[in-house]
């Protein structure tokens, strides 16, 4: 494991933990898309089903379990927590996730490395992760609300994307037979959708800044 990969995993983990702590501290999930968080949970569950079939390392097992449980923890807060659930923008967060889930699943049936149960689910999770931020992007475009989406979370999520791309480049040049077109293509698309999200986040941030200026 190279330093880019490890740093990428850590920033990804930190982004989720930061979000969770922020929800806990402020007792609010305003501005956060439950649909995006649920898509991430689907991504983690379908990708990490291989926990039952293949063992790679103790590091991988622990990280996978943390990713799955923390994503469900965020969903629990948004859906079930007495106070936090009341701050959820239910009426605004209406993106039809089926429009993402179904095409991604179809695509994973057609384009994969191997037509098997775990392999198709793994491929599905890669495709879905690339577009999972879209409901969040739409919610942000509608509300300009950046309450719970702190700049820390946004920064860490972006750093995770950048570091993983560096990791692929590093592995491509240092390992024999390392090439994974599915991951690279969807990873690049994912980074592009993230950049779009980032752009709107900055826009909303500046708009909020203007609103809160003393007159």
């Amino acid at each position: 494991m190279n330093i880019f990969r490890f740093a990428g995993d850590m920033t990804h983990l930190c982004s989720i933990i930061v979000l969770l702590l922020k929800i806990q501290a402020t007792k609010s999930c305003a501005g956060l898309s439950l649909r995006t968080q649920e898509l991430y949970a689907i991504v983690f569950v379908s990708r990490y089903l291989d926990l039952f079939f293949t063992f790679i390392s103790m590091y991988n097992v622990i990280m996978k379990l943390i990713f799955i449980s923390s994503s469900f923890c965020i969903i629990w807060y948004m859906r079930c927590h007495r106070i936090v659930a009341q701050t959820y923008d239910r009426e605004q967060d209406t993106f039809r996730v089926a429009f993402l889930v179904v095409p991604c699943f179809m695509l994973s049936l057609m384009i994969n490395h191997e037509f098997s149960f775990t392999e198709v689910l793994w491929t599905f999770s890669i495709y879905l992760e690339a577009v999972a931020i879209l409901p969040q992007l739409v919610l942000l475009q509608r509300t300009f609300n950046i309450d719970t989406l702190t700049s820390n979370y946004i920064f860490l999520l972006g750093a995770y994307r950048a570091l993983y791309m560096l990791n692929w480049i590093y592995r491509y040049f240092t390992e024999r037979d390392y090439s994974q077109w599915i991951v690279w293509t969807s990873g690049t698309l994912q980074t592009a959708t993230y950049c779009d999200f980032f752009y709107y986040y900055i826009l909303s941030w500046r708009k909020n800044e203007r609103l809160s200026l003393p007159s």
Partner: peptide, 10 residues
């Protein structure tokens, strides 16, 4: 290929 079947990244 070997990279396809062993998904060692998270």
């Amino acid at each position: 290929g070997p990279a396809a079947s062993s998904h060692d990244e998270l």
